[in-house]
């Protein structure tokens, strides 16, 4: 029986590989055509002089890179991208952790709360952002009214009118969208920690904070890492929130790398500079995703 199964497998090894490549072919063709080729073309654009339609006119070497790297605006936008990512991911993790801990407590209505917490992630991002632009409206919007009524501030800002408040308003929307994913991942991790670990800790007289620090956190450490990297990728890449809410305004003060690329290409028609920023962005994102892949596979092996 075992022989009859393994023998043909040995013989069919070559056809099996051929079948595999055949099955992978369509997927790989579209990946190359619509992702890899455009990426290579962006690299070519970054090394060339381009006209207003984005056509390559002639080879320019590193001229575009030097121009962009010598531009203060590029560094401001890159810095803002990093602050945007670090700050948003940090708040998403903290809030996500709090919500996961709450949902890990048994109380009536927990299932409903669980469903409701997911809503910002489940809803359509561009549509939600449109909604937020109404929420932030100064005079008639309900956010400022609510802040006043709760006595939190007597004089709430014109959120989208000034650089700092617009940046805070935008980053909060990004956080709001990203928190549920964090909470769900952390919660799934907490549920996978064996109950008896907590029970023996009870017997040893360990308090709640210690349990969190010595059982919960180490137990979900790997998941926290994977979720953080994934969230960092999504956050760095977030085009929709800023574009729809502020379009980078007022006067480009809320642009991050990703919206700047789009603006340089399709608004200013400076394709060469846009492509330099795109290459920089690609390198940053590839770095993060390589680390993510490494830890993802480490998790696969562990489980």
């Amino acid at each position: 029986m075992a022989d009859s199964l393994t023998a043909p497998k040995q013989r069919f090894l070559a056809p099996e590989a051929r079948l595999a490549y055949l099955l992978l072919l369509p997927a790989v063709v579209v990946l190359v055509g619509f992702m890899i080729y455009p990426l290579v073309y962006v690299v070519l654009m970054s090394l060339s002089t381009t006209n207003r339609l984005g056509w390559l006119t002639h080879f320019a070497g590193l001229k575009n890179f030097l121009a962009v790297l010598g531009d203060g605006n590029f560094w401001r936008v890159t810095g803002r991208s990093l602050i945007w990512t670090a700050l948003a991911v940090f708040v998403k993790m903290s809030l996500g952790m709090v919500i996961a801990l709450l949902l890990n407590v048994e109380f009536p209505g927990r299932k409903v709360a669980h469903m409701l917490f997911i809503a910002p992630w489940a809803s359509s991002v561009p549509i939600s952002v449109l909604l937020w632009s109404w929420v932030y409206t100064p005079e008639f919007g309900l956010l400022n009214h609510t802040l006043r009524m709760l006595g939190l501030t007597g004089n709430p800002p014109v959120w989208l009118g000034y650089p700092i408040s617009a940046f805070i308003a935008a980053i909060w929307v990004d956080i709001w969208i990203g928190v549920p994913f964090m909470a769900l991942v952390f919660l799934a991790g907490m549920k996978s920690i064996p109950e008896d670990q907590y029970e023996s800790a009870h017997i040893d007289g360990v308090n709640a904070v210690q349990k969190f620090a010595f059982i919960t956190l180490p137990g979900i450490r790997h998941l926290v890492l994977v979720a953080t990297l994934l969230s960092a990728l999504w956050t760095f890449n977030d085009f929709n929130v800023i574009w729809i809410l502020t379009a980078g305004g007022p006067v480009d003060t809320t642009d991050i790398l990703i919206t700047s690329i789009y603006k340089y290409a399709f608004v200013y028609l400076k394709f060469d500079q846009a492509s330099v920023m795109a290459v920089v962005t690609f390198l940053i994102l590839t770095g993060i995703s390589a680390v993510y892949a490494k830890f993802y596979f480490a998790g696969e092996r562990r489980s």
Binding site: L39, V42, M45, I261, Y262, L285, I288, Y292
Partner: peptide, 9 residues
């Protein structure tokens, strides 16, 4: 993880 913005141009 590919960024759509990077290739859209």
């Amino acid at each position: 993880m590919f960024s759509p913005v990077v290739v859209v141009i």
